[in-house]
Design a protein around this nucleic acid. Structure first.
Lengths: 218, 218
DNA sequence: GAGGACTTAACAACAGCATGACAACGCCGC
DNA sequence: GCGGCGTTGTCATGCTGTTGTTAAGTCCTC
């Protein structure tokens, strides 16, 4: 899952980003509205965590820019003020959920997950395919009754593959979906991660390769 | 992402191409309108970066050729002139975005990305015939509920046959459609690929041969 | 049964991918 | 702070499946 955090307080932004990364999300940062707009053009996000009080372009404006689009990410608006009116106008502007600072971090995580599930191309609570059962929120993966111990990246790759099943995912697309903007495009880290994932998945082989096309769940 | 850069200034063309390649894009070059037209027939691009002042075929003409098509790439028009009228006529001709030389390179990159994301998903419905279901976008082929694992060429040949169904495709036509312009006309590779495809399709036979005419879906 | 047209098997070349070893990094307990 | 541990990315190397080719085999027509 790919998330954009828009927050002018650098320290807070880092805290949020790190916390979400621990959850296996690919997180990009923007510290003002303009940077956010640029990043939104460069990648497609599942969720945007958006501070309402931004320098330059106001959060409300950014929110409208996002929600004007056809295929848009879900927006979780953060606000310092807790005036009840804010909630209303925020939602009116098209934010999909609302969270007042200060907030408990676990709640932020929960809401981001919940928003991702509400997306039009929604992801079900648990993904199932070919003897695999995967719970993205609780981060549990089971194959044939046996629980798998996966690293953050391995889990994210497996989730992406299951979501796309029975379709294909190229290494390039996986880089976009699972890694963040700092990923080197000419690396073979995807191949390595797939390899490690395959080993943990055990037999029979679950992930198949079609040279020149990508990976898919067999 | 696949990009065609059409620019008669070889040095500038190289600079643009290299810069876009650094962004992980697959970039082809054309130095005049005719070459551009030829390449556009041979491959499907996501974005065309098009210089307006081209020798031979003018950029405007090339732009119209592109935008007349159904499944067309997005066009970013480059122009030396910055007269305000240019922008209007350029966009009128169907360019999707406009950039005046000299430009800042990061801006070019941003706009190419933005265009790619604006590109409407060509949604060619799944192709169906005789128990076969084929989704060119997700690259899935299913026969009687069983997913087929096809190589790049095999898939392309099957797709071509289904698109032409119930018509015929000669080996020569298949060579043109699936292989590139440099393919040896006296090769046997089409027949071999058809053979391998038949084996993967299994029984009952799906691809029939009419000697002297070509192949078709039975 | 001779000839043409297509099919098939076997092989070699190649690109793309897989893999093991290693290094860098952060995390944790002590 | 230090050493151990797991994760992640990089690199070099080896391997595997795909692809095009050649040549032998099959089928049909005349």
């Amino acid at each position: 899952m790919r998330v954009l955090v828009v927050e002018d307080d650098h320290a807070l932004a880092e805290v949020i980003a790190e916390g979400l990364r621990d959850q296996g999300m690919a997180v990009d940062l923007a510290h003002d509205g303009l940077a956010a707009a640029a990043k939104l053009d460069l990648a497609s996000y599942d969720v945007v965590v958006l501070d309402r009080d931004l320098p330059g372009l106001h959060g409300d404006t950014v929110c409208q820019m996002i929600t004007d689009r056809a295929a848009r990410p879900m927006v979780l608006m953060l606000t310092a003020a807790s005036a009840p009116g804010d909630r209303v106008s925020g939602l009116t502007l098209g934010a999909d959920d609302y969270l007042a600072k200060p907030f408990h971090f676990p709640e932020l995580v929960l809401r981001v997950h919940a928003l991702a599930r509400r997306k039009p191309d929604a992801r079900p609570r648990t993904l199932r395919a070919a003897g695999i059962e995967l719970d993205p929120v609780r981060r549990i993966a089971v194959r044939d009754g046996r629980q798998l111990v996966l690293s953050v990246k391995e889990f994210a790759v497996l989730e992406a593959l299951l979501r796309t099943s029975p379709g294909f995912l190229s290494a390039e697309t996986l880089l976009e979906q699972v890694w963040d903007e700092n990923a080197d495009r000419f690396t073979n880290t995807v191949a390595v991660t797939i390899g490690r994932l395959r080993r943990k998945l055990g037999d029979p082989p679950l992930i198949a390769t079609t040279p020149g096309i990508g990976y898919h769940i067999a």
